[in-house]
Nucleic acid binder design. Structure first.
Length: 235
DNA sequence: GCGACAG
DNA sequence: ATCTTGTCGC
């Protein structure tokens, strides 16, 4: 499937160019619910390393609210953008676009393993992707990147607010009893309450919401087989 | 036994 | 940050 980008983009950016683009894109993030009907959610997980220019991406396309797996993609991309704090999304974006292009249908919502607006510059990977593709997006991270919060109660379903610079930028959500909470923030074209609700409705007794959980295991599987192949050729 | 998580 | 392995709690 051919992806429609909101405007022409190039990816051979220098970091100073990326900073400027980041400021522009951050202004375009919409944190209101577009009320689009959500039928297909793409869970997106990115595997990246500080010292490696290979970026792996796993995408799991699930129906919603049934949460049945429809399509899956794992792909690898050689990025040209260096590892710069706060600009990680510029390293990962082209890799994700390449992976998403392999889907046969366009998702209604991107559920990304990473921050949305809960990011030092207000443009985490989920927001960046959402704006570039003009699609609703949610950031759902396993750890906090920015802001302060009080721990939600230990029972599943408890939530508290993630606050930064006097603003509520996200939700800290206990998806399962006695496990570390998730950090949910709007990515694009969604508000905090709906982002939280959709993540909640996507959790099936595991810590991670199904689309991300499945994409994570796909990524792990792919890395495992890659390692086995490497060992076989170079014992 | 499975999932979370240490480090 | 990632991956492997072991341990713990449910």
């Amino acid at each position: 499937m051919k992806l429609e980008l909101r405007r022409p983009h190039r990816w051979d950016l220098a970091p100073y160019e990326a900073q400027q683009i980041q400021r522009e894109l951050a202004k375009e993030v919409v944190c209101a619910d577009a009320s689009d009907e959500i039928h297909w959610i793409a869970g997106i997980v990115i595997g990246h390393s500080r010292f490696d220019d290979r970026i792996q991406v796993a995408v799991a396309l699930l129906s919603f609210p049934e949460l049945l797996l429809s399509e899956q993609v794992v792909s690898e991309y050689r990025t040209r953008f260096p590892f710069v704090p706060d600009l990680l999304s510029f390293r990962e974006i082209p890799a994700i676009l390449q992976a998403l292009a392999e889907l046969t249908r366009l998702p209604d919502l991107l559920l990304v393993d990473g921050p949305g607006i809960a990011h030092p510059k207000g443009l985490g990977i989920a927001s960046h992707l959402g704006v570039v593709l003009e699609l609703p997006a949610i950031g759902c991270s396993k750890c906090n990147t920015v802001g302060s919060f009080v721990q939600p109660e230990v029972n599943a379903g408890s939530i508290t607010s993630l606050v930064w610079q006097g603003e509520i930028i996200g939700t800290v959500y206990r998806s399962k009893n006695r496990v570390a909470p998730l950090f949910i923030s709007a990515g694009h074209r969604i508000d905090r309450d709906n982002a939280t609700r959709i993540v909640r409705e996507s959790c099936q007794g595991y810590r991670l919401p199904e689309p991300i959980r499945i994409a994570s295991s796909l990524l792990n599987e792919a890395k495992q087989t890659a390692r086995e192949a490497a060992v076989a050729t170079d014992p």
